[in-house]
Design a protein around this nucleic acid. Structure first.
Lengths: 326, 326
DNA sequence: CTGAAAGCGCTTACAG
DNA sequence: CTGAAAGCGCTTACAG
């Protein structure tokens, strides 16, 4: 490499110990302001940056937060979440690193390679990975900030609530017979399952018939086929897995010569940029990403500071953006 | 941590040297097949994973490839590129880690923390960062695979070609007076500048008047304003910075009661999922991401293998997806 | 207030 | 064919 702490020590006329104390900002040891200043100045002048590998080896810790993304297309919402999270944490000297879950390399190799302070999983971990990371003193968090691995069989409260919000809005607009637009991409099933369950439960709670579930591929002809089948069963509104799928339903409606919202209402999820630009503008469920990001960041920082009380969960942060499609 | 190479050595009845030789697969040293088998078996049984920090400290290298994203919303195209890249490289034991460029933490801290094998920048680096990384033996690549830092003042050939493709298509369809839909997000200016330059040059080459450049925000009313001004100047087709902006132009056209493509043609860039679902389906310029990803991966691997000849540049990999909007 | 020394876990010449 | 030993650069009790 280049400059080491020994270089800085020699140039400043002090020991490496002193350099380390000054640069890591340990207040316990008393070092004259004059010495501190000199060491810092020398470090800057030489362009010294401590070797993270050495520091990690010594302390068993780094200043990195590792986010593990799943194997599916995450979309703009997660992207924004990651950006916000990076913002929140960078103020405290932590860097966010993202791993796109593809690739055969095992998770173990990855976290051992990075020695992160915390790992945030956007999909469930294998039980053994989870155990090994905890063992190594790494803080492991789920997307929703759960400290403990949720039972993967248990539905996510947030996903349930998303589906419920779609149904409640549609029902309040007088829609009675609902369709559910299921994503064609099989990797999205994990989330789709929970959202659909939320839709089902809300329908039951409101006395509506069970929704007609149909897969919808992301092109107009395929969507038109689903639309025809829905119409055949008297469906007057569709809750879609997300905005992309909702846009496809809109295109299918158009292809069939049907008008939205008159003939059929449509609600999406995510509020992507294209949603407000659709014809008609798409009504959709939006998640408050800032809220989510701040909560995740607070959780990481609370652990960093060793503070006992964890920040409270901020709630789902969901709200319905009402436009013209429903 | 947990298990170290010393544990594996003791359990296998050999020295740490032997463990290291077996596990890193050095063929130079002759070790009996029997011993190799025993060491490997023990390692697996104990769940041994070498400490990357120690290895990095010792060798000055890791198995990580660091991708530095810029401060702007990257969108689905870059996301796909990263996924593909991760796929290509994971076969060779390299992991791709992505850093979203926000945050005040300096790039120096980051690459020293990760000790990556290679760094791929999706936006230009500062001259001093570039120098320091090279100094540390890190391979530094640009998005287009340039080994050498391109002059930031020089326009990107690919971006120029994107703009040119848009114009050539529009001109071939008989459009004469072009508008350019400039993105409202200032962070996108770096790319927008080059794409616009490509549009300008192509217009000049084809004997068309210079395009009318107008900023377009991502909502219908704002876009409608721009559309009105374009129409006032006789514009009969618009080349948009990307698909999101093109979708906004489409919405603006609708709001003004104009029809597309009859009254005004529109061409986007990226071919996002929403493009084919738009009304009318959006004609757009698509980049061959697989090509790009494979090239980048090949470059990294060539360096890894110390092979002298670099893989040839695969070309822009651009093509026009013709739908109904132009 | 400051320095000498140990040790984090690994790889790799160098001896046997 | 295998082992003892050095050293990567840092932090941190422990002496002075």
């Amino acid at each position: 490499m280049g400059i080491t702490s020994a270089d800085v020590a020699r140039e400043s006329g002090v020991s490496r110990t002193t350099v380390s104390y000054v640069l890591t900002g340990r207040d316990g040891v008393h070092i004259s302001e004059e010495t501190r200043r000199r060491v810092r100045e020398t470090a800057v002048r030489l362009g010294y940056a401590p070797s993270a590998a050495a520091r990690a080896l010594r302390t068993g810790r780094s200043d990195l937060v590792l986010c593990i993304l799943p194997d599916w297309p995450v979309g703009p919402v997660i992207e924004t979440l990651l950006d916000e999270l990076a913002d929140e944490l960078s103020g405290r000297g932590l860097s966010v690193l993202v791993h796109h879950g593809r690739g055969q390399r095992s998770l173990t190799d990855l976290w051992r390679a990075v020695t992160p302070r915390a790992v945030i999983g956007f999909a469930p971990f294998a039980e053994e990975d989870l155990h090994a990371m905890r063992q190594a003193g790494i803080q492991v968090l789920g997307t929703r900030g759960e400290e403990h691995q949720p039972d993967p069989a248990l539905p996510s409260e947030t996903q349930l609530e998303i589906g419920a919000l779609q149904v409640r809005h549609l029902a309040a607009r007088g829609r009675r017979r609902l369709g559910y637009a299921w994503p064609a991409d099989p990797r999205l099933e994990v989330f789709a399952r929970d959202r659909l369950l939320g839709v089902r439960r809300a329908c039951a709670a409101l006395g509506l018939p069970d929704p007609v579930v149909l897969p919808v591929a992301l092109d107009a002809p395929a969507a038109a086929t689903s639309v025809r089948r829905w119409r055949g069963q008297g469906v007057d509104a569709v809750a879609a897995y997300n905005d992309d799928v909702a846009l496809a339903v809109l295109a299918g409606l158009r292809a069939e010569g049907l008008s939205c919202p008159e003939d059929c209402g449509v609600v999406g999820v995510d509020d992507i940029p294209a949603a407000r630009l659709a014809a008609p503008p798409l009504t959709t469920v939006s998640q408050s990403i800032e809220l989510q990001a701040r909560f995740l960041a607070a959780l990481v920082l609370a652990d960093l500071d060793g503070s006992a009380e964890k920040p409270g969960h901020p709630g789902h942060g969901l709200h319905l953006v009402e436009r013209e499609s429903a």
